[in-house]
Computed example of a mutant assay.
Amino acid sequence: MPLTRVHNLSISLDGFATGEPQSAEAPFGHAGERLHEWMFATRFWDASGTAGMDDAFAQRHSHGIGAEIMGANKFGPPGWQDDPDWKGWWGENPPFHSPTFVLTHRPRPSLEMEGGTTFHFLDATPAEALAAALEAAGGQDVRIGGGATVVRDFVAAGLVDLMHLVQVPIVLGRGVRVWDGLEGAENDYDIEAVSSPSGVTHLTFTRKSGSLS
């Protein structure tokens, strides 16, 4: 049975997955790239990177994925809906290589890119978006790509089967938090924590069999 998965979502010690304010010049606000430095050092990101524990976790991001769901703020900075030429942050060949569903209150026609990525723009609930993504995934898993608000909404709806968070030892103080409104969510998951020599902690949440969506 296909799974709904979250991978490589980096959060600060105080639970923020991005800083503020987000802009075209600062996609993660005042956090900059500090939440993702652990990943930039791996072979998953750069062929000259490390092949240790961080890389092993990061590589799981891509295996068995048939479609992705992301929020409007992952696709572009505030106001991208007003730019008909905006095609995302990633150039003509985005890294998703699968149907990718962008949740937005202002849908636009689908956008076919190089490398197998087609962006579909939906104004839909988490359950509706997941149904569309599962159909497009052809029996493979669906990745919830973020940002934090989308991940939070899917967890709250009971739709996430596997979630990999990476706790980075920085304090942001402000931004968008993953855990707001999710009191007790840990009760639905078996949780494993693995500390890496890089200083980050990999947290894996696997939905308990009695709590499957």
Results as ranks from 00 to 15, higher is better:
166 V>G: 12
203 L>S: 07
29 G>V: 11
42 T>Q: 05
173 G>A: 08
65 I>P: 15
143 R>C: 04
30 H>V: 04
69 I>N: 03
201 T>H: 05
132 A>M: 01
119 F>V: 11
81 Q>C: 11
183 E>V: 10
53 M>I: 03
11 I>D: 09
50 T>R: 13
118 T>I: 04
115 G>I: 05
99 P>V: 05
75 F>A: 13
53 M>V: 03
100 T>C: 11
208 K>D: 04
164 H>V: 05
191 I>G: 03
148 A>D: 08
4 T>A: 15
135 E>V: 01
101 F>P: 11
16 F>P: 03
133 A>I: 05
153 D>P: 07
45 W>P: 06
202 H>G: 10
131 A>H: 13
61 H>V: 00
89 W>V: 13
54 D>S: 01
137 A>H: 00
106 R>W: 04
140 Q>M: 07
206 T>R: 13
59 Q>M: 14
32 G>W: 00
30 H>E: 06
82 D>A: 13
209 S>A: 14
139 G>F: 09
209 S>M: 15
32 G>K: 10
71 G>V: 14
186 E>P: 13
129 A>W: 01
49 G>N: 00
63 H>A: 14
174 R>S: 12
125 T>E: 01
191 I>A: 02
210 G>M: 06
55 D>Q: 06
71 G>H: 15
66 G>R: 12
117 T>Y: 02
177 R>H: 11
150 V>I: 09
178 V>Q: 10
180 D>F: 04
205 F>A: 04
